[in-house]
Simulated assay, not measured.
Amino acid sequence: MPQGEPVPIDVTKPSLARMYDHLLGGQGGYASDRRACADLLGLAPRLRELATINRAFLGRAVRHLAAQHEVRRYLDLGSGIPRRPHVHEIAREARPDTHVVYVDNDPVALGQSRLILAEDATAATVLCADIRDTARILRHPRVARLLEAGLPVAVLFGWVLECIPDREDPWSLIRGLTGRLPSGSYLVISHLTHDDPDIRAEIGDFLRHTLGRHWGNIRPRDDVARFFAGLTMLGQNAPGDVARWNPGHPPQPESGAPAGWVQYGGVARVP
Rank of each mutant, 00 (worst) to 15 (best):
Q252I: 06
A144E: 15
A66K: 13
V7P: 04
H99G: 12
L161Y: 10
H69A: 08
D10L: 07
E202K: 02
P85H: 08
V143W: 09
W215T: 00
S79Y: 10
L231S: 00
V100W: 05
D39L: 09
C163T: 15
R63L: 12
L24V: 04
W215D: 04
R63H: 15
T98D: 11
R213N: 10
S190V: 13
A124S: 09
L177Y: 09
Q252N: 10
L146W: 13
V11H: 00
L16P: 11
L23C: 01
L187D: 05
V224P: 04
R167F: 07
V153W: 13
R180N: 06
Q263Y: 15
C163D: 09
D33R: 01
E93F: 15
G26P: 00
G158Q: 14
G59I: 10
R114M: 14
V108E: 04
N237A: 11
R145I: 14
G235Q: 05
I164G: 06
A44P: 10
G42S: 14
L77G: 06
P247F: 07
P141N: 12
N246V: 04
I81D: 01
V153A: 12
P247L: 14
S185G: 05
G28A: 06
D205Q: 09
A135S: 08
Q252D: 06
V188S: 07
L146G: 11
P220R: 12
L187Q: 05
I137P: 11
L181R: 04
N217E: 07
I218E: 02
A94P: 10
Y102R: 13
L110E: 06
D104G: 14
C163K: 04
P197K: 12
P271H: 00
N54Y: 08
G176S: 14
V71E: 07
R60V: 01
S15L: 01
V100M: 12
L234S: 06
R114V: 03
A36H: 08
L231N: 05
I189P: 03
L117C: 10
R60E: 11
K13Y: 00
I90K: 03
I116Y: 10
H249W: 12
L75M: 11
A257W: 01
G204C: 07
V101K: 07
V62A: 15
V160E: 04
N54K: 07
G25V: 02
L16R: 01
V87D: 13
H69L: 10
E168G: 06
W159A: 15
R72H: 06
D10I: 01
G260H: 11
G248C: 12
V188M: 15
M19G: 00
T12I: 03
P82C: 03
L50I: 14
L110N: 06
L50V: 14
G184A: 11
T178M: 13
I164S: 06
L40V: 08
D166H: 07
G28C: 04
D222N: 07
H214Y: 02
R46F: 05
L77F: 04
R48F: 08
H194E: 05
L50Q: 15
P247Y: 13
T98F: 10
P247K: 06
L117H: 09
H214S: 08
R60M: 11
A124G: 03
P141R: 10
